[in-house]
């Protein structure tokens, strides 16, 4: 075991055995995900070790990727995952204004905050994304906090941010903290974009957390959040049913041939 670690330490590689024991996945899953293109061929690095040929992976890539697949496979059929994981380009595209109408997102005040003109036929993805977020905050957040959200998104650069939303499971947190000193008291607001489960100091109050993945899905599919959940469930069930049917058919055929 110790010898196996030698090559891995030089380049921050992790052996297949370690990957399996660290993430709890099986050989079957690893090979299946490789076949489906969820783990790129180039990440499989073959090295000779004391015990023979071994496969290593770039440690900082493989572990997050496996965690991502484990998380996402609950919600998506495996065959769609490769596309979802590798899809980045279309998130930079535009959204038809009519889609925002279908979503019921047309609110003059919110459109104004996100800088969307009513007359526009197509809206940049970044602006639609901003709209999807602020409308979730509108009841709890103050006007200047909504502005702060908009500025934060602008600063982050939506083109850069959107691909990371899925990879890292990003959430947007609206936080407030009261500071009192010498008889004066003030409240400050903060906007943080971080992966789910970020921890804050106890004096910070989390006013609202928005799951950015859900916002993206809403825009892409043109449905509200509850509808997205129902559709996903239906899709999952349908896929499971079809797979079962197909396997049954193959099995029967195999039996027939053997018999």
């Amino acid at each position: 075991m110790l010898l196996n670690k030698m090559p891995s330490e030089e380049e921050n590689l992790i052996s297949k055995k370690e990957v399996l024991s660290q993430t709890g996945i099986s050989y079957g899953q690893l090979y299946r995900w490789k076949r489906k293109g969820l783990i790129p061929e180039e990440w499989f690095i073959r090295r000779s070790t004391f015990t023979g040929q071994e496969t290593f992976f770039p440690r900082d890539k493989i572990i997050p990727r496996i965690e991502q697949i484990k998380r996402m496979k609950e919600e998506h059929p495996l065959d769609d995952l490769a596309e979802l994981i590798t899809r980045k380009v279309d998130e930079k595209l535009e959204v038809a204004f009519s889609r925002l109408r279908d979503l019921g997102w047309l609110d003059e005040r919110l459109l104004g905050i996100c800088g969307i003109q009513q007359e526009e036929e197509r809206v940049p993805m970044a602006d639609a994304f901003c709209l999807g977020i602020v409308r979730r905050l509108q009841r709890t957040a103050r006007e200047e906090e909504l502005e702060l959200v908009k500025r934060t998104l602008e600063e982050a650069g939506a083109g850069e941010l959107i691909p990371r939303v899925r990879e890292e499971g990003l959430q947007l947190y609206l936080l407030r903290k009261r500071i009192a000193a010498g008889g004066l008291s003030a409240q400050i607001s903060a906007v943080v974009i971080a992966p789910a489960g970020a921890l804050f100091d106890p004096e910070l109050e989390v006013i609202k957390a928005v799951d950015l993945r859900v916002v993206l899905d809403e825009i892409k599919l043109g449905f509200g959040a509850s509808k997205v959940r129902t559709l996903r469930k239906q899709l999952r069930e349908e896929a499971a049913r079809l797979k079962k049917q197909e396997l049954k058919r193959l099995k029967e055929e195999m039996h027939k041939e053997e018999g």
């Binding site: 297949k16 050989y27 090979y31 040929q53």
Partner: peptide, 16 residues
Amino acid sequence: LIEGDEVHLEDTIADT
């Protein structure tokens, strides 16, 4: 090399 969750082998010559 042969790697699997459930492995059963007969008449097989393998390194690992």
